[in-house]
């Protein structure tokens, strides 16, 4: 049952990443692409959690935490750049 759930969840997350890539390439404006990147890092955290369940190890959660923190910081930095034309004022 858990194998089946892992496969279904993996397929759903891969479809979600494909839709993100679509919005990243098509997106008409800069904030659309930024939103697509923001969603992509959250989905990659889900992918890493699935990898940890599949390999039955907890080593990858530190990587997930790092991706969460750096993704948030980079989103804020690019938003500040688009808002003010400068990151650190």
């Amino acid at each position: 049952m858990l194998d089946m759930a892992l496969w279904i969840s993996l397929a759903l997350i891969l479809m979600a990443l494909t839709l993100n890539v679509y919005r990243l390439t098509v997106g008409p404006d800069m904030p659309d692409r930024l939103l697509a990147l923001d969603t992509m890092y959250v989905n990659s955290i889900a992918l890493i959690v699935l990898l940890g369940l599949w390999l039955n190890t907890k080593v990858y959660f530190e990587a997930a935490l790092l991706i969460a923190m750096l993704g948030f910081i980079s989103t804020v930095a690019v938003c500040k750049y688009l808002l003010r034309g400068d990151i650190i004022e």
């Binding site: 858990l2 759930a5 892992l6 993996l10 989905n43 889900a46």
Partner: peptide, 28 residues
């Protein structure tokens, strides 16, 4: 095991619905 499988599938479904909304809706 059933509870864990339910949470996994619910997580995948919600993630997919979020990305579907981002790809499909018309306005930023």
């Amino acid at each position: 095991e059933g509870v864990i499988a339910f949470f996994l599938i619910a997580g995948g479904a919600f993630t997919f619905i979020g990305s579907l909304g981002m790809a499909h809706l018309r306005d930023f």
